[in-house]
Amino acid sequence: MYYAVIVATLVTMALALLRAVRGPTVYDRVLAVNMFGTKTVLLLAALAFVFGRPDFLDLVLVYALINFIGVFAVLEFFRNRATRAGERQPAQHE
């Protein structure tokens, strides 16, 4: 029963990874990383039940709670760079 959703999650992770590698802007990559994080949460939650080890859900809780901190750090990073540059700065391309 869980295998269908696990396969769907894995394929979605691969698609998100492709977006992270291709870019083109840095924000696409941050978006892909964030999406990858939530997909990992779903994958691990389903796997915990495939293995019959519901106590492993603690790990999933950790991900659900602290995965988004990285995005805040990205926002702070760009805000800092914008204030230091003093003027509006175009997004960096790779």
Partner: peptide, 16 residues
């Protein structure tokens, strides 16, 4: 910056 973002993905994959 791109490398840092991709490191995040690598960490998630390793944990899984």
């Amino acid at each position: 910056f791109v490398a840092v973002m991709l490191m995040g993905i690598a960490s998630l994959l390793i944990a899984a």
